[in-house]
């Protein structure tokens, strides 16, 4: 090692601790703000130490919401976000596994054409074709429904590519052995390919759950019924609802609740997360 410089290491630690402090700061402030009574925010600067009202604030946002500004209780929104995130994740994983299986293990006319059709989805993020996509979903009668929230987002080129890549590395002998033993394609898929892909599936699951949970523009457009609001878009309604300053203690309690699930997923599955992140971008 050439880097055994005591002062250098001290300096590096200093930079990192400062850096971590800056990175953590916004969330720290949010947590602190969510524990204060409303009166704190009328005078002077925001507090930097926790206050006494944590339980009450969280109880208010989860169970009551802000009836005056028309935002429903957060409990329901959290549930909606969870359902949407799970539907998107499971949808993406299953249709990508199936299409990668078809592309790798079969030879059929128009195979390459279909591959390019799937590839196109990479080039058409929802933000750039927002009006016509909204019209299609409206015409199909999918506004204000979980189907409308999830199905338009489940096509996935990256997941298909990743599984294709992985299937190509599965030894040929496995399939030959399965065929000798008389297993059909679907049995091979279910009993051999799926169990082998489990780490890849788990890694992608982490990435896609976060993707699904953090959807913002799409739920904003297609939900007008508060029963289908998701929490990430619900915050915007809380911030801009009403002419006065937002009720910061309740907004920040909501922010904390909205950010917590995906953060926990990353912290508890860091290894899978890093694997998923680096492999989907190859």
């Amino acid at each position: 090692m050439v880097d055994n410089n005591r002062w250098g290491n001290f300096f590096a630690h200093l930079v990192l601790i400062l850096g971590v402090a800056i990175v953590v700061f916004p969330v720290y402030v949010a947590v602190v703000a969510s524990t204060h009574p409303p009166g704190t925010f009328v005078r002077g600067v925001m507090p930097l130490l926790p206050g006494p009202n944590a339980l009450e604030n969280y109880r208010t946002v989860i169970l009551e919401g802000r009836s005056r500004a028309g935002t429903p209780p957060i409990g329901g929104m959290l549930w909606n976000s969870f359902v949407m995130a799970m539907a998107i994740t499971i949808g993406k994983l299953s249709i990508s596994l199936l299409s990668a299986f078809a592309i790798v293990y079969f030879r059929f006319p128009f195979r390459i054409f279909f591959f390019w059709v799937i590839f196109l989805t990479l080039m058409l993020p929802v933000e750039v074709r927002i009006v016509p996509t909204f019209e299609v979903v409206a015409n199909l009668g999918m506004l204000n429904s979980f189907a409308g929230l999830s199905i338009p987002l489940i096509a996935s080129a990256t997941a298909t590519f990743l599984f294709r890549q992985f299937f190509m590395t599965v030894p040929e002998e496995l399939m030959e052995a399965a065929r000798v033993d008389g297993a059909g394609p679907m049995k091979f898929f279910k009993d051999i390919l799926l169990p082998l892909s489990i780490t890849n599936i788990a890694a992608l699951f982490v990435i896609m759950f976060i993707y699904g949970w953090n959807q913002y523009l799409w739920p904003l457009l297609i939900t007008t019924d508060p029963n289908y609001y998701t929490i990430v878009m619900g915050i915007q309604r809380m911030v801009t609802g009403g002419d006065s300053e937002p009720l910061w203690h309740l907004v920040m309690a909501t922010v904390v609740l909205a950010a917590l699930p995906p953060i926990l997923v990353i912290l508890f599955m860091q290894r899978l997360f890093v694997k998923g992140l680096t492999e989907t971008e190859k």
Partner: peptide, 17 residues
Amino acid sequence: LLAPQVIVTVIFFIWPA
């Protein structure tokens, strides 16, 4: 096997584009 992915892509990606 390809149908679900391709149908979603055509209806919600290629058609709107």
